[in-house]
Amino acid sequence: MNFRAVRAIYKFEMSRTFRTLLQSVVSPVVSTSLYFVVFGSAIGSRITQVEGVSYGTFIVPGLVMLSVLTQSITNASFGIYFPKFVGTIYEILSAPVSYVEIVLGYVGAAATKSIIVGLIILATAGLFVPLHIHHPIWMLIFLILTSVTFSLFGFIIGIWADGFEKLQMIPLLIITPLTFLGGSFYSISMLPSGWQTVALFNPVVYLISGFRWSFYEIADVSVAVSIGMTLGFLAICMGIVWWIFKTGYRLKN
């Protein structure tokens, strides 16, 4: 294992994050505050409680997930797409590193950044509503699992994309709608019964449900199913990454 290489890639990616600190940290804080003003105050004045939790408090896990998902995908996809775009990828490919080490470096850095952003949003939310986390360990496990899984997914997008449009397409057209429809701002039980069934095909529902359970012990689906689905998606992403490096897809041809 070439740990020095993993560290070099990780450090490089993290320093890229710190160079853009304002954009990386301030913008999620601002947008979270906006969500609280719009959703928490405007809608929260009409829906006072969801399953025994005040509406403002109820949306916190969903808001954190919303940011963690988009941040993970954006960071990881950009992290690997940019060297491809400017050509510096040549050095990574010609270095004595295995694909596991490359993925550890890039995905590790992207996941670290989205975990940091997730925790910052949580802290920001704490300024607006009282927070109580029933299962902090599980909360962290869900946060880390989701960050890693979606950073891997972003890494795949970054390798697949051959233009900036494709790079933006998946987060904008698939992830954002899935997150909004995945119960960030409501409980699935609030939907008409037909739509409840449709919602179960949305993988994000399981992530948000499990994450929300770690806060308030309320969930749309059972926690075991949430964890199972997350691990399943993680396994699929790992499989695709393995295939990419085995065949050299979009990297070595």
């Binding site: 020095r4 290489a5 270095a95 004595p96």
Partner: peptide, 12 residues
Amino acid sequence: GTVSFSRGLFGK
């Protein structure tokens, strides 16, 4: 920074 990065990448 960039030259040190290369050295790290090659595991030295």
